[in-house]
Amino acid sequence: MEVKVGIASFQGDVEEHLAATREALKKLGVKGLVATVKLPEEIESVDAVIIPGGESTVMGRLSSYKKSLDVLKRRIDEGLPVLGTCAGLILLAKRVYDRIVGETGQPVLGVLNILVERNTYGRQRDSFEAQIDVPPLGLNNFRAVFIRAPGILETESDVEILAYFAKRPVAVRQESILGTTFHPELSGSTAFHEELVRLAMGYRSR
């Protein structure tokens, strides 16, 4: 069985996720393919998808241009495993607002039952890295990089919290949806990508 993981490559740190996913496949000894996806037909062909870090407004706009956002939403509703990091998490969230300008009205997938505040820690000069624990994935002192990161302000009961920083959730899971407010793809660990590959294998063998 060969799994195919797609990296939604509208904008953002696509290549970092390509590299991390390839490494995850190698570590797990899983035969698989990692490809960038932009067009609806490309999104139709994958067993899991990653929405990278970047600017959520830009990704929302560019993925709407060829109706890829609709296809992505339909497939995630049908159970397609997905990992969203930072901007990717914002795109997955049911409700979004910005700390400074308030309601953004930006196009989102609305599949993850959380309320997200954009730029929750402030601007780039307030961006930081810190070591956090992610017990469900067996990670201790994980180097988490928060870049103009969003904050998860509310989670509904079907959302499992995987990690906290300063008492606030920073990594969550809801069935086959994984989301982080930080960038695991920048810190040299493949734990989140390995988890997604495992979900993709389960999804493929349904």
């Binding site: 600017e55 930081f128 990089v145 008492k167």
Partner: peptide
């Protein structure tokens, strides 16, 4: 130190990482 955890602002990873988020834009 925030809530007992060390945070590093302005590290090379944080600064270069910011530029990585602009890619393809």
């Amino acid at each position: 130190i925030i809530e007992g955890l060390q945070t590093r602002r302005g590290s090379t990873l944080v600064k270069r990482g910011f530029a990585h988020m602009l890619k393809h834009g």
